[in-house]
Design a protein around this nucleic acid. Structure first.
Lengths: 159, 159
DNA sequence: TTTTTTCCTGCATATTTATGCTTTATTATC
DNA sequence: GATAATAAAGCATAAATATGCAGGAAAAAA
């Protein structure tokens, strides 16, 4: 059956885009997308895919792709030092425009660069504004979602 | 109390040197070293230390230091492509001497380099022999143990 | 020193995850 | 198409892990 393949792809997508704290939570996400399986199957899928349950910067249990974890660790910096300076996110065409407190932009941009996200080619920072250049093939929403993973504080400030 | 600090250091040491598959197993290792705590405490220690349970190359659950996981992933290559060519390990003084099948040495050495283990300064490979240069402060056994983590097949072939 | 607060741990248990076994579906072979 | 072999999923449950609560030790404040 090739439903399994599709499901596992979907799982990867979900894991990358959300902070999934338990298999039960993953289950719910899958159901909303039309995949109906039980927890046993998930447990096996995750094992297949080498997806482990690791601790993110805030000390919460989170499922992560193998080696995604290193980014979780980096997030510590982004969280504590930089993210608190972020105050808004908008688009100009495909380009993301991240607003920060004055003088924060360089620092935040550096932190974002360090994440070396697949969705982002690079950043260009002024004093309180960062341009985020998406990589070909990724759309605005994907880039935004990915960034939100690392700057959760931004969630409330974004349209 | 500073027993906690010591214990957590010991935990890191154990995790780095062994494939710990469960907290129970870790518990046993700690007891052998004179630390007597229960599973609850371990669970909390691991959370503190951001040590997660991930899947190694062989699909077994294993505790790993944050970002050690990326090495676990690399191990896939070392396992499947390279490690099968390893046939023995001895010492010459502090220097490790890893014997491989003819023509395997370069490939295996490259794989080992990629692991960038703290215990190893570098490697020098001929055709079927690799010299492993330990970093100052690490002894023969530590280096060997660390390497065995990534080339388990070697276990039976080593004195 | 006494009091207060914070931290650490164990106990018991809830929560979460893994897995043996069985059934069902899929693929391959005849 | 029928049958055998393989893979996938469910069910029930075992195994493993996380955590609320309470007691006691250590540290800080008085």
């Amino acid at each position: 059956m090739q439903e399994k393949r599709e499901r596992q792809h979907k799982i990867e997508e979900i894991i990358r885009g959300h902070e999934i704290e338990s298999q039960e939570m993953l289950l719910k996400q899958l159901q909303e997308r039309g995949f109906h399986v039980n927890q046993s199957t998930l447990s096996r899928d995750l094992k297949d895919m080498r997806i482990g349950r690791v601790l993110n910067a805030r000390g919460e249990y989170v499922y992560a792709m193998p080696n995604e974890e290193i980014k979780e660790a980096l997030q510590i910096r982004l969280d504590q030092d930089a993210a608190c300076g972020c105050i808004g996110y908008e688009f100009s065409g495909n380009i993301g425009v991240l607003k920060t407190l004055p003088s924060y932009a360089q620092m935040v941009a550096l932190a974002i660069d360090k994440l070396s996200l697949p969705e982002i080619v690079g950043t260009l920072a002024g004093d309180d504004t960062i341009l985020i250049m998406p990589r070909d093939g990724y759309d605005r929403q994907t880039v935004k979602q990915s960034l939100l993973r690392y700057i959760p504080e931004l969630k409330e400030k974004v349209t």
